[in-house]
């Protein structure tokens, strides 16, 4: 499948998403905010980013904008996952560079499927 980075400040959410993605065959790393995620993504080649919106030090939008403006990270597919009301976030997420926007709590099957499809597409490029 590939390697995924989960970026979320809630440990329970990270564990939950890890379980789902590992079940779908991904290798998984975790980061607690956008800055740490950048530190990791610059070292490890990820096939998928799973990004929360609200995090300390660097929020998910800012992180994705950084990713999209960094040549070596630009092409990594990203799913943004938010606890917030959709009306506000969906558009901002896509503008920041998300390929998909999901609302928490996610259904395990839905996340596993989308993650698989997105990285498969990436591989065939």
């Amino acid at each position: 499948m590939g390697r995924a980075l989960i970026v979320d400040d809630a440990v329970t959410v990270r564990m939950y998403h890890r379980q789902i993605l590992e079940g779908a065959g991904f290798e998984v790393d975790e980061a607690e905010n956008g800055v740490e995620a950048l530190e990791r993504a610059l070292v490890v080649p990820y096939d998928l980013l799973l990004v929360d919106v609200n995090m300390p030090k660097m929020d998910g939008y800012t992180f994705l904008k950084e990713v999209r403006s960094t040549p070596e990270l630009r092409a990594i597919p990203a799913i943004m996952i938010s606890t917030e009301a959709e009306r506000r976030d969906r558009e901002q997420a896509y503008r920041a560079g998300a390929n998909l926007y999901l609302v928490k709590p996610v259904r395990p099957e839905a996340l596993a499927l989308r993650a698989t499809l997105m990285t498969a597409r990436g591989e065939s490029r």
């Binding site: 919106v53 609200n54 995090m55 300390p56 030090k57 929020d59 998910g60 939008y61 800012t62 506000r88």
Partner: peptide
């Protein structure tokens, strides 16, 4: 507010 950076900065 609409700005995630400000919301999270305020929380911190």
């Amino acid at each position: 507010g609409e700005d995630a950076g400000l919301r999270n900065g305020a929380v911190e």
